[in-house]
Design a protein around this nucleic acid. Sequence first.
DNA 1: GTTCTAGAAC
DNA 2: GTTCTAGAAC
Length: 199
Amino acid sequence: MSGKRKNFDSENDDLKKMKTNGHWSNGLLSAMEDPELIVQSNSKLVVIQDKFPKAEFHYLIIPREDIHSLKAVDKSHLELLKYMHNIGERLTQEPRHQSRTFKMGYHAEASMTRLHLHVISDDMNSPCLKTKKHWNSFTTHFLLDSKEVCENLEKYGKIKLLSSEYCKKMMDTPLKCHKCDYIPKTMPDLKKHIMKHLK
DNA sequence: GTTCTAGAAC
DNA sequence: GTTCTAGAAC
């Protein structure tokens, strides 16, 4: 019984590994080829729905160019990043997003390979948003604003990255509602509270 | 990135 | 006893 269960699990793992090119951190590379996730695509980039959305609307804008992360971005990518920003802006203005507010930004330290721009509605209402890390990664300065990233690249020829210490500090920020001064005791408490801000 | 779960917190 | 967080995953 338990032996059979183990076999089943390892077969599942093998399937997952094939899809993720050997490691979970490559998951975006297969996600950007998944027709069920693709929202739009062209020769420069692919827009997908985040597989585990942290809000009611959560998209990823992923360049086709193999840029590993923000650390690999230099001035030669300025036009591409501006273009990604513009595509994001256009996306937020589509009819189904009417009366929604969005944030657009890059995680200072991303887990998944291939540069990706988060476009996320500010409701933060999603069953996939479960942990303090999830919360703080979108509600603190851990999320580097797309417009600011573009401006820094344009003005200084490089992006202001955050030290790993500062990233850790952002992740350890005590929970706080992003729309008012409410201080929740726990994540379930916070998730209940944010319902009050839904329209 | 997620899942799972031990043990901390309540 | 139950809820919740946080660290391992070979």
